[in-house]
Design a protein around this nucleic acid. Structure first.
Lengths: 240, 240
DNA sequence: GCAAAAGTGTTAATTCTACACCCATGC
DNA sequence: GCATGGGTGTAGAATTAACACTTTTGC
């Protein structure tokens, strides 16, 4: 046995000595429709949580990376691909799953509801407005996970151009503002909002206009992600 | 068998069917000394990584929460307790550990080096300046984890009063500024820096002064965490 | 022509930046 | 008394907040 394989054996037996646990991913999938922030839920598979709503989740497979697992869950449950996904937080309370210990990694996903028609709707998969959740009973610790993730989103959307993932590629400024107002639960001044976004200079005028609208149609813009990636600044100033 | 225990059995067998993996925590422990940001490392236990530096980590135990595991690692390796710790990110590359699959959760910790004398220094446990790491070879994917965590810290310290965990309870404004300059790797204007912190109004004048300093001693301040918790604002404005 | 939302500018207040001199202490 | 860093103020620039009227379109 060479030195190298001896080392390998040592680290293998070390890892074998570790306690092992099941690991899952749970996707908190946000969408935006009818001026409301929504979230995608299914009825829980578990008898114990019969009637309760649940995030889309699954155990990870052997040798599967967490990010891939989250993408797979999304694909399997909704048939959709190429969606913005971000690791959010791990939840490890030993009693969070009635079937035994399952550590879960919550992922946050933002997508455009119109562009992602649900191709699979097993287990009553559908969109729920985030506001309606407070009266609903959720499986596992999913209510807590959603609340934390929502707060994270509220904060993050102010500092990163996440929100555009919830909109179609071309959108009016009114829609963009509604998005911010819905997520942050505040009202914003229309003129200042426009000024702010125009001064950032990441919106491209597509030359197109809204259609099927019963008033003066607004211009449609696209967010210039490349320009943002190039220009985003590092230092923003101490402020808390 | 009652309905309830039947359900329990179902979810138990479901969880039993899941793939299980070893899970570890790795603590990225920052300290501040000699005007430099430092990080605590040990020599790797593994023969394979002989001579390489490693984060402080360990596998989690049965029924142990991740946060507790991170605190335990800190206690076991350094003898210290009651330290600021925050979950950072999960790393799940199947090849990141030579002994087999180990998913790790990186935790970030900030502590005051003077107040936490190392009581245990096995495996050459000691502080390394963050800057010196770029020439060093680290075990596992720890270099990448540290880099990501450092960037996270740079961003986070601008928006949250994290940095005070690196300082003694009473500190001079000069020290506070050095801290920001060391972490962000920039120079700041002393007058504007003071104005900024005084205007936030979270610094309490302790009435004490620096000692053992060979120039005019500076006033010592304490950060008022309670006041911060009460006042911290939700809306900061869209800016990216 | 009327309803509904699009589009647009100015002013005052606030915050940020840049910058220079006197002060208190140890030696 | 001199070296060292502590402490302070102001003016111009930039950003933000508050606020109302005209324009375009569908009906």
């Amino acid at each position: 046995m060479t030195d190298k394989s001896q080392h390998l054996k040592d680290s293998v037996s070390l890892v074998n000595s570790y306690h092992k646990a099941a690991i899952s991913v749970d996707c908190v999938i946000f969408g935006f429709e009818d001026e409301k922030l929504k979230i995608l839920l299914i009825r829980s598979d578990l008898e114990q949580f019969k009637g309760k709503w649940s995030l889309l989740g699954d155990a990870i497979k052997e040798n599967e990376e967490l990010d891939n697992a989250a993408n797979r869950v999304l694909l399997e449950r909704t048939g959709m691909n190429d969606v913005y996904l971000e690791q959010f937080e791990a939840f490890s309370n030993p009693n969070r799953h009635p079937g035994g210990r399952v550590i879960t990694l919550a992922y946050c996903s933002l997508l455009n509801i119109q562009h992602h028609e649900l191709e699979i709707t097993d287990n009553e998969l559908h969109w729920h407005s985030v506001k309606s959740l407070k009266d609903k009973d959720l499986a596992f610790d999913h209510k807590m996970i959603i609340e934390k993730c929502f707060k994270w989103l509220q904060k993050r959307i102010q500092e990163h151009p996440l929100g555009f993932n919830l909109l179609p590629e071309r959108f009016s400024l009114r829609t963009l503002q509604s998005l911010y107002e819905a997520i942050l639960n505040i009202e914003l001044d229309r003129r200042n909002f426009r000024k702010k976004f125009f001064s950032m200079d990441y919106l491209t005028d597509t030359g197109e206009y809204e259609t099927d609208v019963k008033h003066r149609p607004g211009k449609l813009y696209a967010f210039n992600f490349e320009k943002y990636e190039k220009n985003k600044r590092k230092w923003t100033g101490i402020d808390f």
